[in-house]
C-alpha cells in the first residue's frame, strides 16, 4: 500500500505542476484552433473562445491548391515512410559492414559519418540543391526521399553501429555454420535481432523528416508535392497570419504521429528497455 507522507505529497504536487506547465502550449493550440475568425484579433491568445467552432478544421481540410492539407499530409506520409525505409535498408547494411570490418578504412569511414552528424545540414544545402536540380530531383517525392536518406544516413549509421558492436558474434557464426550465406545471415538473423535499433532509427529519423520545414520548403516549395509543414506556411501572411487555421493544421499534423506512437509504444518501449538477451 502506498501512503502519502509530507515529502511524497509535496513531490507529487510538484510533478503535477510541472506536467501542467508542459501542457500549456497544447492549451494555447487547442483554444486558438477552436476560435472563430472574428474572435481571433479581439480576444487575447490565452482566452478561450466564447463560441468554440470547428470551422477552422473544415476550412483547412477542404482547401485546394497550394494549401491542400490532405494532400500535404499524404506527401508527408509518403516521404517519411520512404525515407525511413531507405535509412533502415542502407543504414543497417552500411553500419554492419563498418561495425564488423577489421580493415583500417572502416574506422576512417565511421569517423567521416560522425563528422557529418556534427556539421549542420544547412551548410550543404546550396550545393545539394544545385545537384538535385541537375538530376531532376527538385520538386519530386522521390527527390525528397533521396535527400533525407542521404542527409540522415550518418545518424542511422551511428545508431546502428552502436547496436551492432554489442551484438555477440556467436549468432552470425552459428548461422554461417548452419549453412547461411552472408545475405541470409544478415537478413534472417542479424537484422531481426536489431529491432530495437530499427525502432530507434525509425522514430528519430521519422520525427525529423515529418517535422522538417526548411529543406522541404527549399526543395518542394511551389511544386505539386508540398509536405504538410510547407502547405501550412500558406496561412502565414506578411501582414496577417491566420493563427486559428495554422493551429488547426498543427493539431491535424499531430494525429498520425500520436496514432503511431500509441500503436508502437508497447513494442518500442520493450525494445529500448530490453535490448538483446
Amino acid at each position: 500500500m502506498f501512503r502519502y507522507t509530507k515529502a511524497t505529497a509535496l513531490r507529487e504536487v510538484l510533478v503535477w505542476a510541472f506536467a501542467l506547465l508542459t501542457l500549456l502550449p497544447f492549451y494555447f493550440l487547442v483554444i486558438n484552433a477552436l476560435k472563430p475568425d472574428e474572435e481571433l484579433l479581439t480576444t487575447g491568445s490565452s482566452t478561450p473562445p466564447s463560441r468554440p467552432t470547428v470551422e477552422n478544421f473544415t476550412e483547412v481540410l477542404t482547401a485546394t491548391g497550394d494549401s491542400n492539407i490532405l494532400l500535404g499530409l499524404l506527401h508527408s506520409a509518403v516521404i517519411t515512410v520512404g525515407s525511413i525505409a531507405g535509412l533502415v535498408a542502407f543504414g543497417s547494411l552500411a553500419a554492419y559492414v563498418l561495425a564488423r570490418t577489421t580493415a583500417r578504412w572502416g574506422s576512417v569511414a565511421f569517423y567521416l559519418f560522425l563528422v557529418a552528424i556534427v556539421l549542420p545540414t544547412q551548410l550543404g544545402l546550396i550545393p545539394l540543391y544545385i545537384g538535385a536540380r541537375q538530376l531532376g530531383l527538385v520538386g519530386s517525392l522521390w527527390g525528397m526521399i533521396v535527400l533525407y536518406v542521404g542527409t540522415l544516413m550518418p545518424l542511422a549509421v551511428f545508431l546502428y553501429a552502436g547496436f551492432f558492436r554489442n551484438l555477440p558474434r556467436d549468432y552470425e557464426e552459428a548461422a554461417a555454420l548452419d549453412g547461411a550465406g552472408p545475405a541470409r545471415v544478415f537478413f534472417r538473423v542479424v537484422l531481426p535481432l536489431m529491432a530495437p535499433a530499427t525502432g530507434t532509427v525509425a522514430i528519430l529519423a521519422g520525427l525529423i523528416v515529418w517535422n522538417d520545414f526548411f529543406s522541404a520548403l527549399i526543395f518542394l516549395g511551389g511544386s505539386d508535392n508540398q509536405t504538410l509543414p510547407v502547405s501550412m506556411y500558406y496561412y502565414v501572411g506578411s501582414l496577417v497570419s491566420a493563427w486559428n487555421k495554422i493551429f488547426a493544421i498543427v493539431l491535424i499534423s499531430m494525429v498520425p504521429i500520436l496514432a503511431f506512437y500509441l500503436f508502437a509504444q508497447k513494442r518500442f518501449i520493450q525494445g529500448f528497455a530490453g535490448g538483446i538477451k
Binding site: D170, A176, D178, G181
Partner: peptide, 20 residues
C-alpha cells in the same frame, strides 16, 4: 572454404540460439 560450405554443425558454449 567458407563455414557455410563445410557441412559441419557446431554447438556453441553460449548455444547461440536465435532469440527471435
Amino acid at each position: 572454404v567458407h563455414p557455410s560450405q563445410r557441412d559441419i554443425a557446431m554447438v556453441f558454449q553460449s548455444y547461440a540460439l536465435y532469440p527471435h
